[in-house]
Design a protein around this nucleic acid. Structure first.
Lengths: 115, 115
DNA sequence: GCTTTAATTCATTATTTCCCGAAATAATGA
DNA sequence: TCATTATTTCGGGAAATAATGAATTAAAGC
């Protein structure tokens, strides 16, 4: 289905472009249902071909999925991979340190205090 | 002191390079104390000039701070900005959805750790 | 089969990124 | 001052990225 070479670095890089980050945020707000490419392009006022490249970059990174609905391509968030990325940032990068994770630190040590 | 143009996109971009992501992880593991550039270069086996560019990119993004200790430059994590980025990802991007944030979702809807 | 709609691919161009070695800068100490 | 150590800046070249419009593919309906 997908090359599945989605490293955390590649995922961060995918979010590291301002327009792509907006795409990501907009698609997430569409929930499971997702949004057709045309709607995203219209909302962000960007050329279809430009958007298409960004969508496939986000998809290659594993952050979005796509399905076809009649003539339209619907993009939606890939919850599993986003969860993995969040966990990587909190656990692996920040090691659950409250100073770095803020309120989310509770989730990093499973609610247990560090020893 | 600092241009302070640290958008979330720029911060993600800074983490979007494999070597820079390793630098970030290594520096975080050094805690408040931080690590001199030379030690980082040695640990990651990278040319000093190459590392210097990556360090300043991470610093421009607001993720690291630097101070001088005699001849050496010590780099350390910038906790406040990292916390902001974590919060942006969880709150703004993922809107605290448990499906996207995993265990960290507890932090997004009020910060209570799961007891 | 033809037309319309929707999205992607392609080719081009411009820009940026990345890495290296060499030179420059900064701080220290003899 | 001179030498040493540590890091940054500079310059260049290769590779990757981004935006654009034109052409192409895909699905649907008549």
């Amino acid at each position: 289905m997908m090359p599945a070479h989605q490293s955390p670095a590649q995922q961060f890089a995918a979010l590291g472009n301002p327009l792509r980050l907006e795409v990501f945020r907009f698609v997430i707000r569409a929930g499971r249902e997702g949004r057709p490419a045309g709607e995203i392009a219209q909302h962000l006022d960007v050329a279809p071909s430009t958007l298409s490249g960004h969508l496939s970059a986000l998809q290659r990174a594993g952050l979005l999925t796509s399905r076809r609905d009649r003539q339209r391509m619907i993009y939606a968030v890939d919850p599993g991979h986003v969860r993995d990325l969040v966990e990587f940032l909190l656990h692996d990068c920040c090691q659950g340190q409250p100073e770095l994770c803020g309120l989310a630190s509770a989730a990093c040590d499973g609610g247990r205090p560090p020893d």
